[in-house]
Simulated scan of single mutants.
Amino acid sequence: MLTAIYFGAFASPQYISNAQFVVRGQTTQSGSMLAGLLQGGSSGATEDTYAVQDYLMSRDAAELLIENDSLKSIYYPPKADALARFPNFYSGKTFEHFYAYYQRHVIAELDTTTGISTLSVRTFNARDSQKVAQSLLIAAEQLVNRMNTRQRVNTIAASMKEMEDASQRLSAINARLAAYRNEIAMLDPAKQSQPILKDIASLQTILITTRMQIAQLEQSTPDSPLIPVYKRRIDALNNEISLAATHVTGTSNSLVPKISGYDDLIFQRTLLEKEVSAAASAVEAAKVQANRQILYLDEVTQPNLPDYASYPRGVANTAIVFVITFGLYLMVMLLIGGAKEHKLV
Rank of each mutant, 00 (worst) to 15 (best):
D60H: 07
A215T: 15
G31H: 00
T113Q: 14
Q219L: 00
A244E: 08
I227A: 05
M1P: 07
K93T: 14
N125F: 08
I66A: 04
I116W: 07
N145G: 09
T246N: 02
Q194T: 08
T112R: 15
N291V: 04
S17A: 08
F86S: 11
G25I: 01
S43G: 13
N238C: 01
F98C: 08
A178G: 01
Q289G: 09
T209P: 00
A158R: 01
Y329V: 03
V52L: 05
L64N: 10
E341D: 15
G314C: 02
S159K: 00
A201H: 02
S135P: 06
S242D: 11
A172E: 10
S167E: 13
S70K: 12
G36V: 02
G261P: 11
A236G: 14
T113I: 09
V106C: 04
N88G: 15
A80D: 09
S91R: 08
A190L: 09
D54E: 13
A157L: 05
H247L: 12
K131M: 14
L65V: 11
L197A: 02
A215S: 13
M160S: 08
G261R: 12
I214D: 03
P195L: 06
T270M: 12
L203N: 13
R292S: 15
S120A: 15
V248K: 07
I107R: 14
